[in-house]
Simulated assay, not measured.
Amino acid sequence: EQLKAKLLASVGHDVQLIGEGWNFGEVANGARFIQASQLSLNGSGIATFSDRARDAIRGGGSSESGDNLIRKQGYINGLFVDPNALN
């Protein structure tokens, strides 16, 4: 809520915050700080999404580039309104 309030004050209107809530690596399970996981963000006003949703939005997979990224075009880069030659 504090982060949301600061952003609101700085831009003058509501800001949509969306992130990938992961619990992994050396900081897993709150080892070094509170992880921004789906569970810890519950009620904070910050939304999370999955890697599958991210890939559908941006296109491709987590480690794809070049033609594969273009071929697997996502929603945000025009899949439904501006198809490319590879899809």
Results as ranks from 00 to 15, higher is better:
Glu1Asn: 13
Gln2Tyr: 02
Leu3Val: 10
Leu3Lys: 05
Leu3Asp: 05
Lys6Arg: 11
Lys6Ile: 07
Ala9Trp: 04
Ala9His: 12
Ser10Tyr: 10
Val11Asp: 13
Val11Lys: 11
Gly12Cys: 07
Gly12Phe: 14
His13Trp: 08
His13Met: 04
Asp14His: 09
Asp14Phe: 14
Gln16His: 08
Gln16Gly: 06
Leu17Pro: 00
Glu20Leu: 12
Glu20Ser: 08
Trp22Gly: 00
Trp22Leu: 04
Asn23Ala: 08
Phe24Cys: 01
Phe24Glu: 11
Gly25Pro: 01
Glu26Met: 12
Ala28Gln: 13
Ala28Phe: 07
Asn29Phe: 08
Gly30Asn: 03
Ala31Gln: 09
Ala31Tyr: 08
Arg32Lys: 15
Ile34Tyr: 07
Gln35Phe: 04
Gln35Leu: 08
Leu39Gln: 08
Ser40Ala: 06
Leu41Gly: 02
Gly45Met: 03
Gly45His: 03
Ala47Leu: 15
Phe49Cys: 06
Ser50Thr: 12
Arg52Lys: 03
Ala53Lys: 08
Ala53Gln: 14
Asp55Phe: 03
Asp55Pro: 00
Asp55Ile: 00
Asp55Arg: 02
Ala56Lys: 05
Ala56Phe: 14
Ile57Gln: 04
Arg58Phe: 06
Arg58Gly: 02
Arg58Gln: 09
Gly59Thr: 03
Gly60Arg: 00
Ser62Glu: 11
Ser63Val: 15
Ser63Asp: 12
Glu64Cys: 11
Ser65Met: 09
Ser65Gln: 14
Asp67Glu: 14
Asn68Asp: 14
Asn68Met: 12
Asn68Glu: 15
Ile70Pro: 00
Arg71Asn: 02
Gln73Ile: 07
Gln73Ala: 12
Gly74Phe: 01
Tyr75Arg: 15
Tyr75Glu: 15
Ile76Phe: 10
Ile76Asp: 13
Asn77Met: 10
Asn77Lys: 12
Gly78Leu: 07
Leu79Asn: 05
Pro83Gly: 06
Pro83Thr: 12
Asn84Tyr: 09
Ala85Glu: 09
Leu86Lys: 06
Leu86Ser: 05
Leu86Ala: 11
Asn87Tyr: 02
Asn87Ile: 07
Asn87Pro: 00
